[in-house]
């Protein structure tokens, strides 16, 4: 049952990811990417991480993609949509990506280490929000604070760069 759901979510995710790369209109690409992110959030629920699924929906679908669509609507995009791909590099990039992808999949399925990982024993508390919060605020407190400073700096930088005038 869980495998069927995984295959469903994974196939929709891959299809919408292909849509992001291939669609001509950036708005269609953004909506396609939203669909892909929602599938990834569903996969997080399959992996017993409901908090990350919620964060994925809030941050990616709720904030980042809305920001993208806002910028797409704000800018004049017609001249950029006439030509989808960079001149000359389309087939080289395709060959490079296919070679890299098949190398990764070959390494993955030929690795003997993967079968040594035992199947997890799902316990009641594993991956729960309280456990995650406890780890975040004790063991990982310093990275948490650093990330908050990074967010603050990014906020100030974004406002500064889009500010009209002599800044």
């Amino acid at each position: 049952m869980e495998r069927a759901f995984f295959l469903l979510f994974a196939s929709i995710a891959v299809a919408s990811a292909c849509g992001v790369v291939l669609l001509k209109n950036p708005v269609h690409g953004a909506v396609s990417l939203m669909a892909c992110f929602i599938q990834i959030a569903a996969l997080y629920i399959l992996l017993h991480s409901p908090f990350l699924a919620a964060v994925q929906l809030f941050v990616y679908v709720g904030a980042i993609m809305v920001l993208f669509i806002f910028v797409i609507m704000m800018l004049e995009i017609r001249q950029a949509t006439l030509e989808r791909f960079l001149p000359g590099s389309k087939y080289i990039a395709l060959v490079f990506s296919v070679v890299l992808g098949s190398a990764m999949l070959w390494l993955l399925f030929s690795s003997p280490l993967l079968s040594q990982i035992p199947p997890p024993t799902p316990s009641a508390t594993q991956g729960s929000v309280s456990e995650l919060g406890h780890a975040l605020f004790t063991q990982y407190l310093l990275p948490f604070e650093v990330v908050s400073i990074v967010l603050l700096v990014a906020l100030v930088g974004a406002i500064f760069m889009t500010h009209k005038g002599d800044g």
């Binding site: 891959v14 950036p26 800018l75 995009i77 990506s97 296919v98």
Partner: peptide, 23 residues
């Protein structure tokens, strides 16, 4: 891992080949 690798490669192809900076 296979799903992750395929999504990564699809994204890489887009980064290398698309012309619109937003995409």
């Amino acid at each position: 891992i296979a799903l992750s690798a395929s999504l990564f490669v699809i994204g890489l192809y887009g980064v290398l080949s698309r012309r619109n900076v937003l995409i």
